[in-house]
């Protein structure tokens, strides 16, 4: 995905003839087009990947001890649990962005909410996928419909799949932002059900909480839960930049249509 340098112009400079003026809502970082701020982007990427590298080092240093206690598959928890925590975070942020959209009507926050919802959907798929593989090893089954944690997680996936489909289906509808914001807020109501499913409804297969065997494992999991949201924010940023570019394309196309009508 290369920066569309051939069609952009520097932030703060007047646009080329025929191009619409800079829209402050077209991007979050002051540029008329996404990917304008390469240095902050690279810094974000560096922090995310350095954090993952540090995590790898911690895992490698304690793995032999933990493998003896639990088995190699316990390493899955280092990305299954942080992915679940990140998923919670993105669900929450998506709803918060939706509240801001309802309060202000800001297209910037609308794009943020959309990108957060899509990233949360990816995280939900990763949580379900890695959980199923872990379940196959731990419980001998890929899926257990009687387990409330699994069921509510699957419902959350379907809800955010619906959120994504709603965004696409109402693409040209002026009410899209409002409907999507309300949907994102309502969908958040499922989050406590996912988190407290085992406490409220009991468990068939999924453990209530993963008990840490040693302080080292606990610390490494804490690092993983701190680092992974940074990485997923990077993914969110890619998605957000695409949505900003799409919005820019819509703006230019609308202006073009008006000009073509004037010429006729």
């Amino acid at each position: 995905m290369n920066a569309p340098a051939d069609i952009s112009h520097p932030a703060g400079m007047p646009p080329p003839a025929g191009m619409p003026p800079d829209d402050p809502d077209a991007g979050d970082r002051g540029g008329a087009y996404p990917f304008a701020s390469a240095i902050p982007f690279a810094a974000h990427a560096a922090v995310a990947f350095a954090g993952v590298g540090w995590l790898d080092h911690l895992i490698a240093s304690l793995a032999p001890q933990a493998v003896k206690q639990i088995g190699t598959s316990y390493l899955i928890q280092y990305y299954h649990v942080p992915a679940a925590i990140s998923m919670y975070l993105f669900f929450l942020l998506c709803a918060v962005a939706g509240i801001v959209v309802l309060a202000t009507g800001s297209p910037v926050w609308d794009r943020r909410a959309h990108a957060l919802g899509l990233t949360a959907l990816l995280l939900n798929a990763i949580v379900l996928g890695t959980g199923m593989v872990w379940g196959k090893t731990a419980w001998g089954v890929w899926w257990d419909w009687a387990d409330p944690r699994l069921l509510t997680s699957a419902v959350a996936f379907l809800m955010y799949l619906g959120y994504s489909m709603l965004q696409d289906a109402l693409r040209d509808d002026p009410r899209r932002a409002k409907f999507a914001a309300i949907y994102g807020i309502v969908a958040l109501l499922n989050l406590p059900l996912v988190h407290y499913a085992i406490k409220w409804f009991g468990t068939a297969s999924h453990p209530a909480d993963v008990k840490m065997k040693t302080p080292e494992i606990s610390m490494t999991l804490s690092v993983a839960m701190s680092v992974f949201p940074v990485f997923w924010l990077l993914v969110y940023r890619w998605v957000h930049d695409r949505l900003a570019l799409a919005a820019r394309a819509e703006t230019v196309m609308a202006r073009l249509r008006r000009l073509e009508e004037d010429v006729r």
């Binding site: 569309p4 069609i7 025929g18 073009l256 073509e260």
Partner: peptide, 20 residues
């Protein structure tokens, strides 16, 4: 999808240029 949006922008810019 990003590449598709870039193509739409490029196409729109060409049409704008012809209109001018």
């Amino acid at each position: 999808r990003t590449q598709a949006d870039v193509r739409r922008l490029e196409s729109a810019e060409e049409r704008l240029s012809r209109l001018e």
